[in-house]
Amino acid sequence: MKKQSLKENLVYQRKLKGYTQAELSDKTTVGVRTIQRIEKGEVEPHLQTVKLLAAGLDVEVEDLIVLDDPKEEKIQRKWMLLIHASPFFGLIIPFANILIPLFVWISKADDSKVYDTHGRTVVNFHMSITLYFILSLLIFFILPGFNFFITGFIVLFSIIVTVRNIMSALEHGTCKYPLAIPFLKPKAA
């Protein structure tokens, strides 16, 4: 389906399912008048309203919302920056490199598949890096002195990979975190 406005997508999806406006209202907690106003383009609904309509139609939110709006894309860029850059707090606060992206991911995962995918990837990578870091510190008892180089390499590697992925996520919407253990697996379709 080509990119259309929210009102066109809502009408299309509702008619595709064979629902009247009243039937859609019954399937959601959205009033008939609100549905009419959205379909006429008189109002821009809150994201929560769009989520309710998408659930009632049994479609994804992305099937209704159009992301060609520059303001919406600017907001998405800011969330992407927060998801990918927040692990740097781990340089100051122990385990913040995992906890802050984890909290951001939990709060944004249901809003978009993009946030869900990127959030899982970032959390997996930084959980892996933290595990590797702890193991490198334990190597001190086996190879005193040599572990300094391993630990330093792990910290430097994580900083370089994180910076690269911040730029990649903002410019292309993609990310690649090597050596990440998939602790958080993608949702089954």
Rank of each mutant, 00 (worst) to 15 (best):
K3D: 14
Y19K: 02
L57Y: 07
L179V: 09
L102M: 10
W105T: 01
L184P: 00
S107A: 11
Q13M: 15
I160Q: 00
D68H: 11
F89K: 03
E44I: 09
K15P: 03
P101Y: 05
E8N: 14
A180I: 06
K176V: 08
A109I: 00
G145S: 12
L64D: 00
M80N: 07
A85T: 00
L67K: 12
V11A: 11
V122Q: 06
T162F: 02
E42S: 12
V11H: 05
V155E: 04
A169N: 11
E62P: 03
I134W: 12
T121W: 03
L16G: 05
M1P: 12
M167I: 14
G90M: 05
E42P: 09
Q48N: 12
R14T: 13
S158G: 00
R14K: 10
A55L: 07
F133C: 06
P186G: 05
F89C: 11
S86C: 07
L179I: 08
I75K: 09
K74Q: 15
F125N: 10
L137T: 09
T28F: 08
R33Y: 08
Q13G: 00
A189Q: 14
V50I: 15
L99K: 01
K40F: 00
I154L: 13
T162Y: 01
V123P: 01
L143Q: 11
V59S: 03
N97Q: 14
N9Q: 12
F148W: 15
S112C: 02
K17P: 08
Q21L: 04
A54K: 09
L170F: 10
V32N: 04
E44L: 13
T29L: 15
R164E: 11
I166G: 08
E44Y: 09
Q21R: 10
V61D: 05
G119T: 01
Y115E: 09
Q21Y: 01
F153P: 05
E8P: 10
N97E: 14
D68N: 13
A189I: 09
F153S: 10
T174H: 12
I154P: 06
V122E: 01
I160V: 14
L135Q: 08
V66H: 12
Y177L: 06
F89A: 15
L82E: 02
L16D: 06
K113F: 01
L6P: 08
S128H: 09
A96Y: 07
K17Q: 12
C175T: 06
D69Y: 07
V114E: 14
I35V: 10
